[in-house]
Amino acid sequence: MPERTGEFGKFGARGARGSELVARKLDDLAGYIASPVTARRGLMARLHYLTRTDHARSAARAAGLTVTDRTLKAWLEGKRRPTARNLDKIDAAYRTVRRHNVARHLLGRLNRAGRGTRVEIHPLNQSGVDRPQQRVVPFRDMNVRRWDAIVAAWAAGDAQSLDTAWTDHVLPDLGSQWGAYEYCTAIGFAA
């Protein structure tokens, strides 16, 4: 069994943790609002999403948006503008609530009734590594059938659990060379 990478990049290799790339891809699939929170359109879209129902309001409060109803009303009517700190809180609460709302749907699409989803793993970039230290790490693809722990960790925003789920439960299915794919340049899948 291969060891985990202790000093990634020591010889000049470049890439990112596979779990980070999976989280980015899941964020892409979640379909966030494209307009930035600093633009009026983006702010209003996020505020409407977070205040549409009582359930959405309580989820927004649980996610860290703790302002009074009066302040929310003033923001929605355009009478006041949130501070930069509150804009960050609004965006963070929106992403948290959105992740939670789409997690179940996304999990169903990724698991596909036990058939799973095909995942492409592009190996790390070794262009900066001297020739003697380079190793052959080919492009790989695999079918991932167990997405439950990955999506749950992503929805909770728990990077450590996501890394554990990806590295300990998915990568070993690649065989004895799975340690070479702990860091990658890209991971792609569709749902």
Rank of each mutant, 00 (worst) to 15 (best):
N86Q: 15
K79E: 15
T167L: 12
K25E: 06
R17D: 06
D28E: 15
A159D: 15
A60C: 07
T38G: 04
A153F: 12
D88Q: 11
L29M: 10
K73L: 06
D28F: 08
A16R: 09
V151R: 02
N143W: 14
A149H: 11
V97H: 03
S58M: 09
P172S: 09
N125T: 05
R85N: 06
L106T: 02
R109A: 11
A191D: 06
A92V: 05
A156V: 03
R46K: 06
A60S: 10
M44F: 12
R57C: 08
V144E: 02
Q160K: 14
T38Y: 11
A103R: 05
T167F: 14
G175R: 04
A190N: 03
E7P: 02
E120W: 14
Q133L: 15
A23V: 04
R85Q: 09
A159F: 14
R52C: 00
T83R: 15
A34Y: 06
Y181N: 04
R81V: 10
A165N: 10
G179N: 05
V170F: 05
D148F: 14
V22Y: 09
L124G: 02
K73A: 09
S58P: 00
A59W: 02
G175I: 09
P36F: 12
R99Q: 01
V136A: 13
V119D: 01
T53Y: 03
A153Y: 10
Q126Y: 07
A63N: 07
I121P: 03
M44R: 02
D163F: 07
R146K: 12
V136T: 14
D28C: 00
E77S: 12
N101I: 01
F11R: 11
L47G: 04
G31C: 04
E3M: 11
D141S: 15
S58H: 10
V67K: 01
L107R: 14
E182Y: 12
R80E: 08
S58F: 07
Q177K: 07
L72I: 13
K79A: 09
F139V: 13
V170M: 08
S176N: 08
A180H: 14
A13M: 11
A165T: 09
A84D: 11
A45M: 11
R4P: 10
L162W: 12
A191R: 00
V102G: 01
L21W: 00
A180N: 13
